[in-house]
């Protein structure tokens, strides 16, 4: 059944769409019938800039399994990336 449930995440960053780069401040996240993906239900994310009216979006529709894998990889990339970029420990004299 079509749902009207949307989770909103406040963001800071940019996304690239057909018109090029744009500032984004919000991700609308939902799990419902997709528009394009050949799935009965898909995890959809619309990256938008509400401050600019929210009319343009960068969108994805992926399977639930893909979404869970993506969440894991986002956390893994953050963990390893933040460790790599952390200031090196000062060697004890």
């Amino acid at each position: 059944m079509c749902s009207y449930i949307v989770e909103k995440a406040a963001l800071f960053g940019s996304a690239k769409g057909p018109k090029g780069w744009m500032q984004i401040d919000t991700a609308n996240v939902y799990f419902d019938h997709p528009y394009h993906a050949p799935l009965d239900h898909a995890l959809g994310i619309d990256f938008i800039c509400e401050a600019e009216g929210g009319r343009d979006r960068v969108a994805i529709e992926i399977s639930a399994e893909s979404a869970r894998e993506l969440v894991k990889k986002i956390l893994a990339a953050l963990a390893s990336g933040e460790a790599a970029h952390a200031a090196p420990a000062v060697a004890a004299k």
Partner: peptide, 16 residues
């Protein structure tokens, strides 16, 4: 105006 899928996304965000 806009592609029907983008227009649909706006309506979804507004709760239908």
């Amino acid at each position: 105006p806009g592609d029907p899928d983008d227009v649909g996304a706006r309506v979804r965000a507004a709760g239908g």
